[in-house]
Design a protein around this nucleic acid. Structure first.
Length: 319
DNA sequence: CCACCGATATACT
DNA sequence: GTATATCGGTGGT
């Protein structure tokens, strides 16, 4: 049962990381293998992929671009000021540093509806709307990796400037992706996306890493409905740890389309927090009410949350 | 729908 | 050695 998984790993190893990117850390593990593997798979299935997804997926050549200059190009110089009112002309609604500079709870809520974008080495852009997040508020938060002010090589990203990614390995085989917020040791975990573009590539990436039967096709709802699922679907791994979401060329966040209504938000207890005492109960998980893309629905929390459809909450909501 | 289980890197007792 | 911000398969209700 385990054999196919190991086998795939070995094959990927022997193929090796494409590694053309200057500046990419060379200790890439999974995602490096993912992309190597994906390139091969895409080679095989290119026609299939081209048939679907008229928009953004796979317009480029399957060969990886020679370099991926990941430091200091567009975003840091660019149109930082008008994040909220970016001109209709500039296709870039990219969120800049100032957006991430909010306390964890505010940022966790503000993320809902925004679009996470991942550009692969071959130019493929994968997109998903954020529908579920969790806030980890800092050293006082017993459920946070930064509890008690702990700082280790692993969680350093939590203490870096707002917008810094904190990607860590969980249960030995999966990744979770966080964004540092304002406040030392505070961050926001991304838990679920509504996939918007590059779904077939996401399916490939997810399938490539699944153990056991390789056969069955994943439903759209299984692509990004969980913190580690979305990392698989977007090929996010440890090499993304401590990158700047406001400046990186392979991953960034875009403001939701103008005119998009604020989603009704449910506040619920965080998932997978067992031994964190009172902190385990606090409503620090936020998700879009009614979204089918959320990983775990909490009916009780939905009843206790007074927010109905967006129209009726205006008077009462106290963000 | 649910409970159980195994896989297994990292931090901590 | 033990716990963990998970996932997917199996088998039950």
């Amino acid at each position: 049962m385990r054999a196919p998984f190991l086998l795939r790993r070995k094959q990927a190893d022997s193929v090796g990381v494409p590694g053309p990117q200057c500046g990419e850390p060379s200790f890439l593990t999974r995602a490096g293998m993912q992309e190597a593997q994906l390139s091969r798979r895409i080679g095989q299935k290119k026609r299939l992929l081209e048939a679907e997804e008229p928009g953004s997926d796979l317009h480029g050549a399957p060969t990886p671009s020679p370099t991926e200059p990941r430091l200091g190009q567009p975003a840091s110089l660019g149109p930082q000021r008008s994040v909220y009112f970016s001109s209709p002309k500039s296709r870039s609604a990219r969120l800049g540093s100032e957006f991430f500079d909010q306390p964890a709870v505010a940022l966790a809520r503000a993320f809902l509806g925004q679009v996470l974008v991942r550009r692969l080495d071959d130019g493929t852009e994968l997109r998903g709307r954020i529908v579920e997040t969790e806030a980890y508020v800092g050293p006082e938060d017993e459920a946070a990796h930064s509890r008690g002010g702990r700082q280790t090589p692993r969680n350093r990203g939590m203490f870096m400037k707002p917008g810094t990614l904190y990607v860590y390995v969980i249960y030995g085989m999966y990744f979770c992706m966080n964004v540092s917020s304002r406040g030392d040791g505070a961050c926001v975990l991304l838990r679920a996306l509504e996939p918007l573009g590059g779904l077939e590539t996401m399916r490939q990436l997810r399938n490539a890493l699944r153990k056991g039967t390789v056969g069955r096709a994943l439903k759209d709802r299984e692509l990004c409905s969980g913190p580690s699922k979305l990392c698989q679907a977007l090929a996010i791994d440890k090499s993304f740890d401590q990158r700047d979401l406001a400046a990186d060329t392979a991953v960034w966040m875009e403001h939701s389309a103008p005119g998009t209504r604020e989603p009704a938000v449910v506040a619920a207890a965080r998932v997978g927090i067992g031994q964190a005492g009172e902190w385990a109960q606090k409503p620090l998980r936020f998700y879009v009410r009614g979204s089918p893309w959320v990983s775990v629905v909490d009916r009780t929390a939905e009843q206790n949350t007074q927010s109905g459809p967006a129209v009726s909450i205006c008077a009462h909501e106290a963000f």
